Simulated scan of single mutants.
Amino acid sequence: MEKEVLIELKDIYKIYHIGDTEITANNGVNMTIYKGEMVAIVGKSGSGKSTIMNIIGALDTPTSGQYILDGNDVSKLKDDDLAEIRNKMIGFIFQQYNLLPKQSVLDNVGLPLMYARVGDRERKKRCMEALEKVGLDDKYRNLPSQLSGGQQQRASIARALVGRPSLILADEPTGALDSKTSREVLDLLKKLHLEGNTIVLITHDNSIAVEAERVIKISDGVVIFDGDAKEYKNEIKANA
C-alpha cells in the first residue's frame, strides 16, 4: 500500500535580519514525512533544526518555499490560522514540560480540548484515556510539583495526545531527564508510534536520534542525511 504523505517541505528558506546582518537559518530544505512514521531531525546547536521545528509546528512561517501539512498549505497563513492548525493538528512535547503549576494534571492535559471548546464530560473522558496510555491515570488530581520529572513529561505527552492530532512534535523530550527516565520516555514514544501515531523528534543527540526509524540530519541549514536509523548508525561509525 502506498504511504500517505503527512509533511512536505519544498525548498524552504528562512532568513532572519538582525540589524544590518542577514542570517540564513534554512537554506533550501526539502523533506517528506509519511503518516505513521517516527522520524528524528538531528543537528547541532545552530544547524537550523530548531527553525525547521518551528516551521513544522506552525510556530513560524518560511521566508520562501512551501510547507504542506496533511494536504493544507500552511506556508503563508496568518497567526490566527496558524494557531488553529497548531491546536487541531499538532501535539507538542517540550523539554521543560510547560505544565501550569497551579492546575491539576487533569486540567493541564485537557488544555487543548478546552481551547477547542470540547464539553466538560467529553474532555474528562478523553483526558483520562490519554493519562491511562501514559500510565498516569492515578495521578490526575495531582499538581505538577507532586510529580517526578519523568511523570511530568508523561503528563505533557498525554496533553499532546488528547486532541488526537495528525502529528506529535517532540522537542528534546528527554533533555531534562536522567538516563533511566529518558529510556522510559523514549520507550513510551516508540509504543505510541507502534499504535499508529506520527512522531517527529527534534534532538541534538545522536544516541536519541537512532531510536527513531528514520533520521534526517541538518547542518548549516541544509539536509545532509536522510535515511533509516541503521544507515545513520553506520554513518556515525564511519565518521568517528
Rank of each mutant, 00 (worst) to 15 (best):
V74Y: 08
I55F: 06
E84F: 02
G135K: 05
V118K: 02
L77W: 08
L77K: 08
L59R: 05
P62C: 08
D70C: 09
V42D: 00
R86Q: 00
G135M: 09
Q96H: 15
L59S: 08
G57Y: 00
L136N: 03
T63C: 04
K44M: 13
K76A: 15
K125S: 10
I41P: 09
L100P: 08
P112H: 01
L100E: 11
Y67D: 02
F92E: 01
Y67I: 04
P62F: 06
I93T: 01
K133L: 08
I68L: 09
E132S: 11
E122K: 14
M89I: 07
G43P: 12
I68C: 06
L59I: 05
K125Q: 13
Q95C: 10
T63F: 02
Y67T: 05
I55S: 14
L99R: 08
I41M: 12
M53C: 11
P101E: 13
K133H: 03
V105G: 03
K76H: 15
R86G: 00
N98G: 08
M89K: 14
D107H: 06
G46T: 10
D120W: 10
R117I: 09
D107Q: 09
E129T: 09
N87F: 07
K49N: 07
G48W: 07
E122V: 07
G46R: 13
V105E: 02
D70G: 13
K133D: 00
K125G: 03
K49Y: 05
R86T: 00
V74G: 09
L82S: 03
L99T: 04
I56R: 03
K78V: 12
D80Y: 13
D107K: 09
L131T: 01
Q66K: 15
K49P: 07
G46K: 15
M89R: 14
T63I: 03
T51S: 14
L113W: 02
K133F: 00
K76W: 14
V42A: 03
N87V: 09
K76P: 11
Q96F: 15
M53D: 05
I90T: 03
S47M: 08
I55T: 10
M128V: 06
A116N: 14
G91Y: 01
D120N: 15
L69G: 04
L82N: 01
V134M: 05
R123V: 02
D81Y: 07
K133C: 01
I41Q: 13
I93K: 03
K49L: 08
E37T: 07
M53S: 05
D60S: 07
N108G: 08
M89E: 11
Q95V: 07
L136F: 06
D79W: 09
G36T: 12
S104K: 08
